[in-house]
């Protein structure tokens, strides 16, 4: 099985540690993951901000780059949901001329079943719950909207976290409520976004957790940026980084 890593543009540019953690973790589990250098971005920002023509181009690029692989692993619930949920709609959109989307529907149909969020790949494909991690910290988990309501990841991430040695998992009140990131929403509707994050941070603080974990660095960038601005003393970590941590290597 040829497994490719779709790192996502945000992780590639801003959070390379997450990518390295995915590589470390998958190698530890015996998966020889490849990184196709031609990959760029899934197009979510363009599509969700109202630029479907750019989105169509990037979707086509994605399908071409990853066509030859048997599985594509992504450390982002949001980008996985973009591909799985939105690519089919994008391929049929009337907002761009039909010749731009020609053939995209078929390519999307072929690629979608092969694309997995990291926790889906670990649990559903590899069948592993205990990934051999060690992380002796108090952690709370925020299920990001697209991983929760888009991908229906359910308890997969918390099952993985629960199996981590030393980790104390505490439930986050109001976990299912959006943190207020929403891509360009965070800038276009800055006040509502900040108000939503204020409540999310309030809930995080009641847990007494040291680390906030999620399966999306974009949401974590928003919540983490707020936690940092408020000098809250809580840090954020992507699920992959906790699962990659081992004794001696833990932060």
């Amino acid at each position: 099985m040829r497994v490719a890593l779709f790192i996502t543009c945000v992780n590639d540019t801003l959070f390379p540690d997450t990518g390295r953690a995915v590589v470390t973790l998958l190698r530890r589990l015996g998966v020889d993951v490849e990184f196709p250098q031609a990959q760029t971005c899934c197009g979510q920002m363009h599509v969700n901000t109202g630029y479907p023509a750019e989105g169509v181009r990037l979707a086509r690029h994605f399908t071409e780059v990853f066509a030859e692989y048997d599985a594509v692993v992504t450390p982002s619930g949001s980008c996985t949901a973009m591909i799985r949920e939105q690519y089919p709609k994008l391929a049929a959109t009337a907002r761009v001329p039909a010749k731009q989307t020609a053939g995209l529907g078929t390519a999307v149909e072929e690629i979608v079943p092969k694309v997995y969020d990291l926790s889906e790949f670990l649990l559903d494909v590899l069948g592993v719950t205990d990934v051999g991690a060690y992380f002796p910290h108090r952690v709370t988990y925020h299920p990001t909207c697209h991983s929760l309501r888009g991908l229906h990841l359910g308890d997969r991430p918390t099952r993985l976290l629960s199996a981590v040695r030393g980790l104390e998992l505490v439930a986050l009140p109001g976990a299912e409520e959006c943190c207020g990131f929403g891509g360009t929403f965070a800038v276009k509707n800055r006040d509502i976004s900040a108000a939503m994050c204020a409540d999310k941070v309030g809930n995080i603080m009641t847990t007494g957790a040291e680390v906030l974990c999620a399966a999306d660095n974009s949401c974590l960038m928003h919540i983490g940026g707020t936690l940092s601005r408020q000098k809250s003393g809580v840090r954020v970590m992507h699920l992959a980084e906790i699962l990659a941590a081992t004794e001696g290597g833990a932060r």
């Binding site: 959070f15 276009k188 983490g224 940092s228 601005r229």
Partner: peptide
């Protein structure tokens, strides 16, 4: 709109 209420992540 971003930095009014949030710190930016460190650019690697």
């Amino acid at each position: 709109g971003w930095t009014d209420t949030r710190d930016l992540p460190d650019i690697p």
